[in-house]
Design a protein around this nucleic acid. Structure first.
Lengths: 145, 145
DNA sequence: ATCAATATGTCAGGTTTCTGACATCTCGAA
DNA sequence: TTCGAGATGTCAGAAACCTGACATATTGAT
């Protein structure tokens, strides 16, 4: 029997979860005054980069289900932050777009969140940051499919 | 106006979320046959390393609220995987312990999950793995408090 | 010794997200 | 052309998790 258990803090998966938990908490702190949740913020960011994205595309980009993104989008729509045509000429996908209000709120959110990502990597020099990003990329690749 | 948006894939926070999402999915795949969720698995792992841990301690270790851990523990208790004394001599904390059945199931879970963590870092050599772990540690430190 | 601050367990209610299911639409192969 | 596979939007129900609240117990400062 191998009774030598590695310390929990040395397990990559555990530390990854720890870091994600902290990052989420910090983001929610600064987004709360704007009445935005982390997934909502992610959705707005996705929309600025991909105007006219469909519900399913946004769901994939935010790593949630279509159903979750659907309810999330309704909330943003009721607040006038995004718009979706009620009917569409072809297909089922309804392209979503940021409204001016949505863009403005996103700008505020970006400003609020900027400091966090900066703080996140504040202990790493430029080389280490690049190595970190490459390592994450490699892990994503390895777990795909 | 700075209209130069960095690619989403180059944002550390976004990639971190992506990786966490993939890791979670892979773990749930292999834990489903054992009828264990990822938080339940984490709870069992914590208990093996810290026998007699309280509900609150387990909650902190699994990065969920006390309330969530409480209901989670009840499920494990009903399945006979952990035990908690109904009364305790001092304090309110009820120390939780793995039952033999719990230990056995945990062994199976560890075996099932082992391959995933291995696969996760399969694209990194030993130096890169160490650097990766150190980078995560640094980021955790930077976001604390 | 006392009392405020802190930690713990737990109940209640609400929000978010998920799984399952179904109808609709596009597209490519037979 | 036709039809089956895949993608999309959406509804309904369930599961997981969170916030708020309260009682209880420990601890440390006064």
């Amino acid at each position: 029997m191998s009774q030598d258990l590695p310390r929990l803090e040395s397990l990559i998966g555990y530390q990854l979860k720890h870091l994600q938990s902290l990052l989420r908490a910090r983001m929610e702190e600064v987004l709360r005054p704007l009445e935005l949740s982390t997934p909502q913020y992610a959705c707005l960011e996705l929309l600025r980069r991909s105007p006219g994205a469909s519900n399913s595309e946004l769901a994939r980009g935010a790593f949630v289900t279509r159903q979750a993104m659907n309810t999330l989008l309704r909330g943003l729509q009721e607040r006038g932050l995004v718009t979706r045509p009620s009917t569409v000429d072809t297909g089922r996908a309804r392209p979503t777009t940021l409204t001016p209000e949505g863009e403005q709120l996103l700008d505020e959110a970006v400003a609020a969140v900027a400091g966090i990502e900066e703080r996140l990597v504040s202990g790493l020099d430029e080389d280490a940051q690049r190595g970190f990003a490459e390592a994450i990329e490699s892990c994503i690749e390895a777990l795909q499919d």
